[in-house]
Design a protein around this nucleic acid. Structure first.
Length: 277
DNA sequence: TCCCAGGTGGGTC
DNA sequence: GACCCACATGGG
């Protein structure tokens, strides 16, 4: 499947800190190619040109899964153009710099556990930890070729993990958080599908009741796992933007309903400005 | 050795 | 509410 879209850059998406299971694949020449595991499937993506991406799937699978996963029915160009023509200089530059970013519709449970793990860790370390739990607890996927891939574990399996095993996977003090969060999902005390249909506000309130989920992680889960795009997670990078660029005067309400997308451009651009990666 | 990382929970006041 | 600090772990 070949997708033409001016706002679809797989490298930018992979480096935007929203997902942790996109793998840069070694290629000849300067070809940009990624592998990805989501919803129990493996997909390869190649950036053919600035606005064309090749996907290694049938049209049926694309329409059934990946079109939605990459949020390809949403017009990101409208957002970028609005910011690029706006008064805000930082957002003007940030939106143009990260104009290929999209907000993925990740599996809610995977996003939940991933962002519980993310607290007080850097991105490479988060990726290592998540890969570890997938290899230890996830189903092995059969993929043609020589690669071996693992699905993200189910709430049932992860709720049965032992603390010692999780510590061995370098998850540190988050062991309890992971087990108890998996259990509330498995026992349906928390219904993520229900929250996805509901509002952003009620989602954050429900998520914050879970041990190990605070304001920031709840916003990440709402934004990346439940696709409430008004979610606005404030981590150390966004905090820097709010302080250094806006002197704590940033008005999020200017972007009501899609602040999460704006936040993503801010995050990605600030890391670039500070020389990360 | 100290500092930082897509923070949170549990104390104080 | 606002401010402390401990919490595992790896990397610079």
């Amino acid at each position: 499947m070949r997708i033409k879209n001016p706002n679809f850059n797989i490298e930018q998406i992979a480096d935007s800190g929203q997902c942790f299971r996109m793998y840069r694949l070694p290629t000849a020449e300067k070809e940009v190619k990624y592998g990805l595991v989501a919803y129990g499937k493996y997909l390869e993506l190649t950036q053919i040109s600035s606005d064309v991406v090749e996907m290694s799937c049938s049209e049926e699978e694309y329409l059934d899964l990946w079109e939605n996963y990459f949020d390809l029915k949403y017009d990101y160009n409208k957002i970028v153009e609005g910011l690029a023509k706006g008064e805000d200089i930082f957002l003007r530059e940030a939106s143009l710099y990260g104009q290929g970013i999209r907000i993925l519709k990740q599996e809610p449970f995977e996003a939940m556990i991933s962002f519980i793990i993310s607290q007080n860790k850097n991105i490479p370390s988060i990726k290592n930890c998540i890969e570890g739990i997938c290899e230890r607890y996830g189903d092995k996927l059969s993929v043609e070729g020589d690669g071996v891939y693992y699905a993200f574990p189910t709430p049932e399996v992860l709720s049965q993990a032992s603390k010692a095993e999780l510590r061995a996977l370098k998850l540190g003090y988050r062991d309890d958080y992971i087990i108890s969060a998996s259990l509330v999902v498995y026992t349906k005390q928390l219904n993520l599908q229900y929250l996805m249909k509901g509002s952003f506000e009620e989602s954050v309130i429900a998520l914050k009741k879970i041990h190990g989920i605070g304001e920031k992680v709840a916003n990440c889960i709402a934004l990346y796992g439940l696709h409430h795009i008004e979610g606005f997670p404030v981590d150390v990078w966004i905090l820097r933007v709010l302080k250094e660029i806006y002197n704590d005067q940033f008005e999020k309400d200017r972007f009501k309903g899609y602040a999460g997308i704006v936040q993503q451009y801010m995050f990605y651009y600030m890391r670039f400005l500070k020389g990360v990666k």
